[in-house]
């Protein structure tokens, strides 16, 4: 360990670079390479106990820790936002254990760890998107037995998923699944995109960035290489479609971004704003013709 010595930040020298020991990193790295070689297939791995509880992104954190290099610039988002508790604490974790540079600007990041959103800004070939995944098995709620779902994947036996989507149509007149919407990766494996809104599914298809998925509690890693087909399951007469809003973002006026509904006072007034905080702030800064707003994010 030499790289951390120069800066007087809160870097903790008591740990190996990026917290995990080298043996653990090797195990995760082997799983990652196999995951990339078999797009959408869930590779079992020996998930470690991390200094945060399951459900806080231990899978994503382990993937990030195994790939992180001192040259990286890390961005962490939670529901699209850089400044919520989960994002802030994971960002601080890697500042502390790896002394890694961080950013909130999507285009400046080399690694983006995300909980439940894909940034609105298109990703590039030099970027890696790391998803935190709670339930990696898309068939789990339809078939609870791991022995069975493993067989179903081995045999491409995915009829039950189409039945589930069909039952949506029979009951509600349309497919109501709105997040964790199942996709078919590279024409072979039905895969859970993690609980991202289905609004983000089209961004996964032929994405130039490498997409890695880590599920800590469930001990699975999977991946989608760049330029790989990702098709949201649907029917010819009920084609896949994404959410739409009949208004624009109240802050930046974006019309084609994913919007959160926010209560603004005790009278129940509400407004719709971009869930991607960086995208929204950059648009507002461009409208105001300055970048000071980007530095002073805590005004929101």
């Amino acid at each position: 360990m030499t790289m951390a010595a120069s800066q007087e930040t809160l870097v903790d020298e008591g740990y190996n670079f990026a917290y995990l020991d080298e043996q653990t990193k090797r195990m995760i790295r082997r799983a990652l390479l196999k995951a990339i070689a078999i797009p959408g297939y869930q590779v079992p791995f020996a998930s470690r106990e991390m200094p945060m509880p399951y459900g806080w992104g231990t899978g994503g954190v382990q993937v990030t820790a195994a790939i992180l290099s001192p040259d990286d610039r890390l961005k962490v988002i939670d529901q699209g936002s850089d400044d919520t508790t989960n994002a802030v604490s994971i960002r601080k974790f890697f500042q502390k254990t790896a002394d890694v540079a961080t950013t909130e600007r999507t285009e400046d990041a080399t690694i983006i760890q995300t909980r439940h959103r894909i940034p609105e800004t298109p990703l590039s070939e030099d970027q890696i998107l790391v998803y935190q995944v709670p339930i990696p098995e898309p068939l789990r709620f339809l078939e609870p037995r791991e022995t069975e779902t493993r067989q179903m994947h081995a045999m491409s036996d995915y009829g039950v998923m189409h039945v589930k989507l069909y039952e949506d149509i029979a009951r509600h007149g349309r497919i109501v699944t709105s997040y964790d919407y199942p996709v078919l990766v590279n024409g072979r494996y039905v895969t859970a995109p993690s609980p991202t809104p289905k609004f983000d599914n089209p961004k996964m298809d032929s994405c130039p960035a490498l997409q890695l998925f880590g599920a800590g509690r469930e001990k699975r890693i999977y991946a989608i290489p760049p330029h790989t087909t990702v098709k949201s399951l649907d029917f010819e007469d009920h084609p896949f479609e994404v959410q739409r809003w009949d208004q624009a973002c109240a802050l930046c006026g974006a019309e084609h971004a994913f919007l959160d509904e926010v209560l603004v006072n005790d009278q129940g007034e509400r407004m719709f704003v971009c869930s991607d905080s960086d995208f929204c702030a950059q648009r507002r800064a461009a409208q105001n013709g300055d970048t000071s707003e980007l530095e002073a994010r805590d005004d929101r």
Partner: peptide
């Protein structure tokens, strides 16, 4: 540690 990471 670092060279192994860069190689990976």
């Amino acid at each position: 540690v670092v060279d192994g990471t860069l190689a990976f």
